[in-house]
Design a protein around this nucleic acid. Structure first.
Lengths: 332, 332
DNA sequence: ATCGTTTGTGTAATCGTTTGCACAACGATA
DNA sequence: TATCGTTGTGCAAACGATTACACAAACGAT
């Protein structure tokens, strides 16, 4: 019982203790398999007594299903905010699936990390990172069709994916800001290399174009508060923009602080600032951000929906599209 | 190569292709094992060609080591902020250890979830959640000695742990606030049932006692901004406190917003507000929180240090103590 | 030419499950 | 009573690696 013996008991040993074969032990733990209910009860009782639980590694080897899910997320970033991560992890756990977290810092080891995870025969792969090329994902996970959380049309249509469409809402937000008299827009990107960021930028650029406007200035950060702050300072020093669209909410908060603190400009009178994602923090009283918001619950529901289809053997590929909604705050 | 064949190639099949035995395949992938370098090179080349990688599940079964680490964290909470989580995950990955994330929402399934993870024969367990009793952890993981991130003296000294000591810094903070003329303190707890929270409260209570003071009011939240906001409003309505010590930084921000927005009180003139943890957000310009801060990098270094000792076979138990430092902001 | 050591490889057992197949016991039916 | 389905159990072969052991070849020293 308590920690005296170090090794875990095996089904064969338990079999001896219960006077049955190890096959019967296995059956006692499989909900629907031919076994006498008396035998099962006895086995479960003995199992509890000796602290026996079937070894999931051995089972996975035999079953060819590990019930592990690889979650590939972007280090700090977007869109895998802790909120979403947590929602998803809870939903997975409710289905007895365990998440292996792959936090991909820089590109060098990203692929190697994914290769490592793939050797664990994960049943599903969810890729949140916009830095991973789909072809790499497909090649590496090979037998496990990944689910890509994608923001753009995929060249490889053999992969299940979730698309986010924010074009309409970006339009609403731009309309409002232009309506308020702002004319000179800047885009503060989350990263230089991400295609998600490029697509998001396009939503806003297209909306501006409908007003005969275009981004007058650009800058690149790294999705962090500090980068939002720093880039906004540089931006506002070198150009006279009166509206900044930011790559995510955290950068928007940084930019707002920079405008207020360093330049003495207030939102929304002097400058409009817009975020993206709609994280909980955006709604905090001290922030009250205007942002292009995504319903995170619906988002994770969609991910789980795809996983369930894959579990059911229907590997798709499937595609789900979600649309963003504006959140109106006091920053624009 | 590309996605035509679904099954992953096995060592036996690769052996046939390379004209060797499967044992030799295995040796080609073990850095120091007796094998001709010509053979190894040839095997690695063939392996690359067919996309072969040793199956980690099978290897784990044989090795009795899975290179998986269970991370037990408190759903939303403290102290496992995303920052810490990420630091740790990176360090684990650098050691070719993969983290399985257990997000324990409510107590009902917490134990069951830990049991599930334990069947995967994880090599290490790191428990950040203050809601897990140590005895449960030891019983469930049984063969794998867990590492508990503990804030209080442990009854069971057989478990490696990391202690945080904030008594001295809490004293400094209280001294400063009392020196500024504040007299009436409230404590806004993170949770009702956590012993970590109780210990933290004690640091401040002891410091107050040295000034002949005590907490005049108490409230309980759930480590979230909303709970900080809501409880602060109630607290300030029913008592005339002029200083609130909060269970974590996020609640402190909520309380600050509540004081400012609902009661019209400003920090630090009208009311002093103190957080705990020292997360990055606390230093943001818009927050600039006074907080009892922990060095997260040192914290995660300590966790990794313990894991490495366990890996080296030196299971301890080991104990490491870290001390907090005050972060002086404009809220107190 | 002989012996001893080193080096490289194959054989087969092992890790702890699951599951197809075989078979015994049993009650029900004709 | 002979036959037939049903039920419960054991045997043994997977699953895909690792590794102790055995052995052949190669090499140097006598």
């Amino acid at each position: 019982m308590s920690g005296t013996n170090r090794r875990r008991i095996t089904s064969k040993e338990l079999a001896k203790l219960a006077g049955v074969s190890s096959a019967t032990i296995s059956r006692a733990f499989s909900p629907d398999s031919r076994i006498g209910s008396a035998t099962r009860d006895r086995i479960l009782a003995v199992a509890r007594e000796y602290g026996y639980q079937p070894n999931a590694i051995a089972r996975s080897l035999n079953n060819q299903r590990s019930r592990l899910v690889a979650l590939v997320v972007n280090a700090i970033g977007n869109p895998c905010e802790a909120e979403e991560q947590q929602l998803l992890v809870h939903r997975l756990q409710a289905r007895q699936l365990l998440p292996i977290l792959l936090c991909c810092a820089d590109h060098s080891d990203r692929l190697q990390l994914m290769r490592l995870a793939s050797t664990y025969q994960v049943d599903h792969v969810v890729i949140f990172s916009d830095m991973v090329s789909m072809q790499d994902a497909v090649d590496i996970f090979h037998t496990t069709k990944p689910i890509i959380v994608s923001f753009e049309p995929l060249e490889n249509e053999d992969v299940s994916n979730i698309r986010i469409d924010g074009a309409a809402s970006a339009g609403e937000i731009i309309d409002k800001i232009v309506g308020d008299g702002k004319q000179r827009f800047a885009y503060l990107s989350g990263t230089k290399s991400s295609w998600i960021d490029k697509l998001r930028r396009k939503w806003f650029a297209d909306a501006l174009a409908r007003h005969g406007l275009a981004f007058e200035a650009e800058a690149f950060g790294d999705y962090s508060y500090d980068s939002g702050f720093k880039e906004a300072v540089l931006l506002l020093h070198r150009s006279k923009v009166d509206a900044i669209i930011c790559g995510n909410d955290v950068m928007a908060i940084g930019a707002r602080d920079a405008a207020r603190r360093v330049l003495g400009k207030n939102t929304p009178e002097d400058i409009a600032i817009v975020g993206q994602d709609g994280i909980a923090m955006a709604a905090w009283d001290c922030n009250d951000l205007t942002t292009l918001s995504l319903d995170h619950v619906a988002f994770m529901d969609a991910v789980v929906e795809l996983i369930e289809r894959h579990e059911a053997g229907n590997e798709g590929p499937h595609s789900i599209t979600l649309t963003c909604t504006p959140r109106w705050g006091s920053t624009a």
